[in-house]
Nucleic acid binder design. Structure first.
Lengths: 204, 204
DNA sequence: ACGCAAAGTTGCACTCAGTGCAAGTTTGCT
DNA sequence: AGCAAACTTGCACTGAGTGCAACTTTGCGT
């Protein structure tokens, strides 16, 4: 078994704390919530809260939308000869699938983060961890030292920006279509060198 | 005059607090420094500290390497017809000049931020503010609504990534040449669609 | 079923960040 | 000199986060 009761209860408590934190923060704003309130809503002591999360904001932002290590695995699975941007594109599309599955949670947290920029800070910390790992993998694949050549970091930054930006727009428009399609379009633009796009459906 | 004595003393106090914070944080780490110690080193009361900075980390990270509003002005000055990426490139090169002037301060803060990732978080918050403003300007210039079309945010993210990444590499290598040259090269890569680069100085 | 050890929870006491308020002090202006 | 605005400061307070030492629960061997 997977440690059974003990492990399951821990997972439950963690989830209870995290969702209580999210719910309360939606109602009262991040500063209107105290750790004491979160702990009470989850049925544990305030002290126990800190056994699960190292800060209040961690609990509100919760688990990262896409686990850093997963995207790294996606990237590592790509064939060695593939151009870096193509590998990143493929890994990103894989992420899109996972994101779409948890879209509702994502939307709630996303709105909260947009309303309270102080939370954005916590969230980007997650991106930074992922970014560092991806940069090293791209460095390995291209034979470039990321500390001496900007290319790996540039490519990864473009990919992460695509996720960040496209997901935000996709939310704003209430998920008009498959997230993967929108991401693919963004990668097309990046691969084309980000040329000025046609303004809109204007001419007539 | 520019408000004379009063304004000057405020600027002095702010600088004294910021540099005391930086110096102490270098020695003891961000968590080893208290606001009380910073205030004492700067010769003011702890309460006064918070009249100048809204958090301890703000004082340590100090003023943003490139004032957000300045880069926005650089961008706004570019001719209207110019392709967005070209405008961003020009604005970025202008930033490079200002950055190079304060290179020493930058290096100190950069090392600190690298050693203590918790500070990175504060620093990116500064980038986020700038990013938002630039995105709106690019949206204006292209006639695209940033909330509906990812292009403006993608282009701006690429530009900011270029600054972030190139400056980091430039520091790591002890400023091998003009920062502007390295940035221009990065923009060349972006405009070319980030193709896989040749591994090194290989061909014969 | 019993008891032991490991893991988890909790209360307590503490440090420190950060805020609001109500003084006091300094500066600029007339 | 005298007034008003700006700035500083002390005080009291809330709340985050940590270390520690009990206490309770769970898992496991006998």
């Amino acid at each position: 078994m997977t440690e059974g009761l003990r492990e399951r209860k821990k997972a439950e408590t963690r989830l209870a704390l995290s969702s209580a934190a999210l719910r309360l923060a939606e109602q009262l704003g991040p500063d209107g919530v105290t750790v004491e309130a979160i702990a009470e809503a989850a049925g544990v002591s305030p002290r126990t809260f800190f056994n699960y999360f190292s800060s209040k904001d961690d609990a509100i932002v919760g688990i990262n939308p896409s686990d850093p290590s997963q995207m790294l695995e996606d990237l590592a699975r790509r064939p060695a000869g593939e151009p870096p941007l193509a590998s990143l594109r493929a890994a990103t599309l894989a992420v899109a699938g996972r994101l779409e599955a948890h879209a509702d949670d994502l939307v709630a947290r996303d709105h909260l983060v947009q309303r309270y920029p102080s939370l954005a800070v916590r969230r980007t910390a997650g991106y930074a961890v992922m970014e560092q790992a991806l940069v090293e993998e791209i460095g390995r694949r291209t034979g470039l030292d990321p500390a001496r050549d900007p290319y790996p970091a540039l490519a990864v930054a473009a990919a992460i920006a695509a996720i960040r930006v496209v997901v935000a727009v996709w939310h704003d428009q209430d998920r008009p279509g498959p997230l993967a399609d929108a991401l693919a379009a963004a990668f097309d633009q990046i691969a084309a060198g980000l040329p000025a796009p046609v303004p809109a459906l204007s001419p007539g």
